[in-house]
Amino acid sequence: MSGEGSTNEELKKLTKNDKYSILLPTYNERDNLPIIIWLIVKYMEKSQCAYEVIVIDDGSPDGTLEVAKELQKIYGEDKILLRPREKKLGLGTAYIHGIKHASGNFIVIMDADLSHHPKFIPKMIELQRYLDLDIVSGTRYIGDGGVYGWDFRRKLISRGANFITQLLLRPGASDLTGSFRLYKKDVLEKLIKSCVSKGYVFQMEMIIRARQFNYQIGEVPISFVDRVYGESKLGGSEIFQFVKSMLYLFATT
């Protein structure tokens, strides 16, 4: 992947019939949203791939939607699409809602809190095109992947949970709980339909179902920088939820 210039030209050719719909679910992300959109525009324009950003805001009380409207004025209604919902209905359904309005044949799912850097999207696109993959998943656990802002305890829990899930589920992907991924649109639609879990653990189920359907999964190492602004909305029941759905998938798939 040397020689940025030639790579971009090649990628442009490879993706000339493709469009990438980037789904951004937001809940109280007014400080992050302008930055993440600015970064997406920066890196997607550089890659010269066709794209759109779909912001799915769940009635954030901090006024995220108002900021999104401002951004839409700056970047255009063809680039930034707003598909808000009345109230907080959760991440899983936010994706379903977003896909319905997506005009691309590929979907990128990422968090809006700046922990997922848009510079990895062109890398995912490239890998997908070269190997005709169904899914490309960002991973913190292999190669140059990693995290920033995690203490020893959080790293230990993360590595421990990852070890156990790999042992029990053998999913064929190293980062199950990460939510920075590129999907073929029809693949994502089919996966979402077949998933039973809701909320945060459904990222894990998606990969397991993908393995069941024999979809081809590729991985791009990502650096995960813990959110700068605002707080994580996922509370303490996270671990319990995780164990429960891991055991469920262990027993049923």
């Binding site: 990693g146 993360s158 070890f163 700068v228």
Partner: peptide, 28 residues
């Protein structure tokens, strides 16, 4: 030992964090 090894060798993405801070300023 595997989990501990991987915990200690978990990449610390200092550069990514610095780069992000720089880009945030630029973006704003």
């Amino acid at each position: 030992s595997v989990v501990l090894y991987r915990t200690f060798t978990f990449n610390n993405c200092e550069e990514a964090a610095v780069e992000l801070q720089r880009e945030i300023k630029e973006a704003r």
